[in-house]
Design a protein around this nucleic acid. Structure first.
Lengths: 312, 312
DNA sequence: TTACCTGCTGAAACGCGTTCCATAGCAAGA
DNA sequence: TCTTGCTATGGAACGCGTTTCAGCAGGTAA
């Protein structure tokens, strides 16, 4: 492979001049430019990006940590982050964490090692403070309410929208509300927000038999719904953690030939549109864009985004 | 930031010894190892990945070119490629092409510039031969039948499965079959395979009013279905290019209060399962894995994968 | 005693751009 | 005529690891 030195030698100019020509910076005479270009074409030369990165001290790449891609939440975030990165010619590498603490730390260490210019955690298993500690090595952005932790963040105001949602349900007369959650309460902020909102609106915790945790996808939902179907006293409403999961629950009720309770989902997914389910759109597109901006500029801001209830 | 030279100096050993210690290669005495480790810990040192990449001459990163992420085909491929890359500690960067020739060439040039160790095209706008030409700079893998072009490939045998599918439909007595396609025939190999198979089984091309192109997602499908709904002579079967799109078509028929023709989708998506639609599973998971292997090993093999009709 | 091997270490070259700084010709302004 | 100042260009250091190779103990087999 030809290097910039080969080009310089063959063209009869110095490395500096060739570099200046390549980057269109500084002075290069027209004649020099032409001669250099000729040699470049002849030798099929292109500068080596790795060397350039080393010299510049950055990679124009940001890492996005996702537990997995099954949940549309991550998909939507990924997509909008990519879109934003694309606009400024940055690269995005997807990093799977599976909520594995070791992997998450590994990615943070890679930030330290300059493998990325910044790191966005769409979700995480290790404590937020630990993420924050790595900010000395580069931008680390989380996608949740940092609640006092000094870390860059772009996130939806879940608590607020859940309050609104439960108030709406209360107002519509629902009292016995079943729920699915992705991860149990102490671990997941989303679950925390959901439960806290419920308690605030209804004054009590929901009956334990009305809560199913560990529900992340259609299959989980179908499985979890079995518990609801069996209940002697049926819920009068089901608050699912995604439209797909709501769809799975409906399926299970139908397969069991039982009347399907009214329900709502989240994420405004295709399945919800198909089944005309009410849903909550958390505006993840905006969250992703903001997260990227924070990573790109290295700002330590915290940017909340408003969610939206879609009733249908 | 501390460098390996700082560590060497402070520990009183040479750079080589530190490097050997870091990589657990060659000889390092126990005492040296301990002293070096101590200094590393003190100075919070980690080697710089960019420098390492430059030295090694590769990035442990492969690029995956996707037109967009809306189509689940790309999602599934991406996911399985990532999964495979993850297993060997490689990184995956997602590259959006939007079928833009300029962008595709840009990514190929980046391969030349060593930004990636290999490049997987899940789809492409520029000719396959042009992709093939870049193989001199590194592995370039396509995800379609290369039909004689010398390029690494992992792909599903679409033509075969479409033949099977149309034969099945013929056998079930369907004769007036409507279709949705993502891109018009000369551009898209998938569309080509679909139409060729149709012609081979039924002896003629389908009536033009039964074909809708440019249909890539739910919204497109809903739109395109309007044309079918209006037809005086209704199709007796609809062959959609994805389950989601089939779902959209059903929706449109229902919204228009017209009887819904039987139909099948592709991709074995959630919507298809929900609506109990027959479908074709193209086994993209396997395709993605194979594509990654080819990129990783730099082999110039062509690996076809069998699809599967799921009738329900 | 010579030959050779193993354990351990360091100097220096290498990978390949970018950038700072110095040098120099030449023209316009003082 | 002497400064400035701009255009052009080159030398060399720099970014930071990896790797090759030479060298030097101490030990052992021939």
């Amino acid at each position: 492979m030809a290097t910039i030195r080969d080009i310089a030698k063959r063209a009869g100019y110095s490395i500096s001049t060739v570099s200046r020509y390549l980057n269109q910076s500084g002075y290069v005479s027209k004649i020099a430019a032409e001669e250099i270009q000729q040699v470049i074409t002849e030798m099929d030369y292109v500068p080596n990006d790795i060397a350039r990165d080393l010299s510049k001290g950055h990679t124009s790449t940001i890492g996005v940590v996702v537990p997995h891609l099954r949940h549309p939440y991550f998909m939507q975030l990924m997509t909008s982050i990519m879109e934003a990165a694309f606009a400024v010619n940055d690269h995005v590498v997807m990093l799977q964490s599976k909520y594995d603490a070791q992997l998450e730390v590994q990615y943070l260490e890679q930030l330290h090692r300059k493998a990325y210019d910044g790191l966005i955690f769409t979700s995480h298993g290790i404590p937020l403070t630990q993420l924050a500690a790595y900010q000395k090595y580069g931008p680390v952005i989380c996608c949740e309410d940092p609640r006092g932790v000094k870390i860059a963040a772009a996130y939806t105001l879940r608590q607020e929208i859940y309050l609104d949602a439960f108030r709406l349900l209360q107002q519509k007369g629902y009292r016995r509300i079943a729920m699915t959650l992705s991860r149990p309460e102490p671990v997941s902020l989303t679950s925390q927000a959901t439960m806290a909102s419920y308690r605030q609106v209804f004054g009590t915790s929901p009956a334990p038999e009305l809560i199913q945790t560990g529900v992340a996808n259609y299959a989980d939902g179908y499985q979890a719904a079995a518990a609801f179907v069996q209940l002697a006293q049926q819920p009068d409403f089901i608050f699912a953690n995604s439209d797909d999961i709501a769809a799975a629950i409906i399926q299970r009720y139908q397969d069991a030939n039982r009347p399907v309770p009214p329900m709502m989902g989240q994420e405004n997914q295709l399945s919800g549109q198909l089944l005309k389910l009410p849903t909550i759109d958390h505006h993840f597109k905006e969250v992703g864009q903001l997260a990227f901006q924070l990573a790109y500029n290295g700002q330590l801001k915290q940017l909340p985004v408003q969610s939206e209830i879609i009733w249908r």
